[in-house]
Design a protein around this nucleic acid. Structure first.
Lengths: 344, 344
DNA sequence: AAACGCTCCGAAAACGGTTTCGGCGAAGTT
DNA sequence: AACTTCGCCGAAACCGTTTTCGGAGCGTTT
């Protein structure tokens, strides 16, 4: 009559029952001994611990989760694993979680809503305690809905629904900060070459640039932001055109480090000294591009790891019954290098 | 007498019991209905399905896992989440898994053995069905040991223990391939500037370069591989030195795309035409560096996503009772761009 | 009318832990 | 000597699901 159900092949490791049997106690006592509860004689406890160690007993987290209703796992739903934005966020989150005893279940939806829905169900089925959704651009994305049984935090790409909690870098402030830096170091004839205007990030940064210039009473040389694509090639051609029409600029704000690299190359080619004649700035602080160029690029760091950590903290708070809502904008940081400061 | 144990606060979602009650059947029947088993009347089945849909029932995977002894989860233990090598591998693995119903539990040990051990225990406790360990360089790393209850596959960084299954890119062949390409396109005076010689990758690639040159009966100009660091700065200074001493080279094989970018910049500065006078090659096919340079870089792609996919497949095979062992070297692929072919 | 086969359903065991609560000695109290 | 107190331990419920196996109901055959 016993053993009606039996997984046929699978080798299972030692269980608490085995520990209990070998230590000559009940499973209840074994459990209490291993979990440091008080109602166990020290000697008995040691015996249990020794046995557990000896047979290398590893408690089955699943069983515990099933009972207590929490898994100690969070889902990380990303939309571009290859992108350079998800990664630091993921690291920051892993960091914040790792110190405790949370694990991260990673899913990549690749921008496909169907796949996203599929992964969502999988995560829900695995009873994750919370969810971080990270997008590939700062453009708002559809909400996962308000009906989910677990808290959700959106990182980098905010949710379109203001009832959700979203964390995004403050691109507008970033644009302002970089212009403030240039103005503070004596530049006054500033132009702005950015990337693809379809990206909210490009428009937001341009807005910041415009605001800061207006605040300083300075003109935007060229009269507009020159949008193009997030490539070195665009940076090169835009810089050529700009220099032809406005040879008197003394600073060039670029929408990304890639664009700035293109600009740097053309300026060098045309014999323009950076930063003496023209200062150049990037955006993103993508180190492989910005740290080792000639001269190294002054750029804006969006602090994505901090954003990831904060996302984890917001999630913790929500799981703890203290949810937040709305879009939270995190400050950027200007990283000053040689392209704006001859001393570096 | 009922409800002795009760999780106090946690809101639990609808369970199979709820579905069964609302559909007027037993849990056994409800389970069978939802899982498409045959011994259920079509009408009953539909009723159950409708109820499940209506109350948005999500089966608790944990309970199932506990019973059948498999979780449908694999652990991904990485050592540099920020590095550019882990990511494609992770994507490839996620890809291979995602099609089925596997989930990925991600841990970043950051090169710290303690943290690695800690994460390993967490993964074991969560009863992952298998483990992929991905390192940050192709240097061998210590084995996790043979005593683990689940199969392990090492990716990118091989295990030092030959009994383990390891998957690495074939750097030696990559070095050979790039030289073969140069020789085939008419180059004969070839020099090699690489990165940090402490990396196995640098030494292996150099070995391939040397072998291929010897095979073609050609000398390595300069008489040696010039090791330095994986930076543009090193690429620049090495190229200057090389041109001063050997102005007659017609090809420069670089150990990475970063080094190649530095070389490209110096060649342009010194008025040397690439590829007409000197061909330049990189390694890694890091697109942000190689695809948009002037000219675009011919480079070697290590096929890391394929490596990740294969790691997943090897893991599946092992979980299925067909383990592999030893170090498997995966082929690289030369990506031809303008820096070696004037037509591009 | 009895025997049989078939379809559909439900009781119950099982997975591996945690927690509650009652029991049992031994020591202390009166 | 009887009663209380206290420390330590174990039986059993419980989490949510799957699977087995017996049984009920019903139609068909001899």
């Amino acid at each position: 009559m016993t053993e009606v159900v039996r997984a046929p092949d699978r080798h299972r490791g030692p269980t608490l029952k085995d520990v209990a049997r070998l230590a000559g106690v009940s499973v209840a006592t074994a459990s209490k001994a291993l979990n440091g509860r008080s109602e166990v004689h020290p000697e008995t406890r040691q015996r249990v611990i020794d046995v557990a160690e000896r047979i290398s007993f590893t408690p089955n987290t699943l069983a515990r989760s099933l009972l207590v209703g929490q898994t100690g796992t969070v889902g990380l739903l990303t939309n571009d694993l290859e992108g350079r934005f998800s990664l630091p966020i993921l690291m920051g989150a892993e960091d914040a979680f790792g110190t405790g005893k949370m694990s991260v279940l990673l899913c990549d939806a690749r921008g496909d809503a169907i796949r996203e829905q599929y992964h969502l169900r999988a995560l829900l089925g695995r009873r994750v305690d919370g969810l971080i959704v990270v997008g590939s651009s700062t453009d708002p994305r559809p909400s996962l809905g308000q009906e989910l049984p677990i808290p959700v935090v959106y990182a980098y790409a905010p949710s379109a629904d203001p009832r959700d909690a979203s964390l995004v870098p403050d691109n507008v402030a970033g644009g302002r900060q970089i212009v403030d830096h240039l103005v503070a170091t004596g530049r006054s004839r500033i132009a702005h070459v950015s990337g693809d205007s379809a990206y909210a990030a490009a428009r937001e940064r341009a807005q910041g640039v415009t605001e800061a210039l207006a605040g300083a009473g300075l003109p935007l040389i060229g009269g507009q932001t020159f949008y193009g694509s997030w490539t070195e090639a665009w940076g090169r051609s835009a810089t050529h055109a700009l220099l032809d029409q406005h040879p008197d600029i003394d600073a060039l704000v670029c929408g990304s480090d890639q664009v700035a690299r293109g600009a740097l190359e053309v300026l060098r080619e045309r014999g323009v000294k950076v930063p003496q004649q023209i200062a150049v700035t990037g955006f993103d602080n993508w180190e492989v591009l910005s740290a080792d160029s000639r001269p190294p690029l002054t750029t804006v760091d969006m602090g994505l790891e901090a954003l990831g950590r904060l996302a984890a903290e917001r999630l913790f708070a929500a799981m703890d019954g203290r949810p937040t809502a709305g879009e939270e904008r995190l400050p950027c940081r200007v990283v000053v290098r040689g392209s704006t400061d001859a001393g570096l």
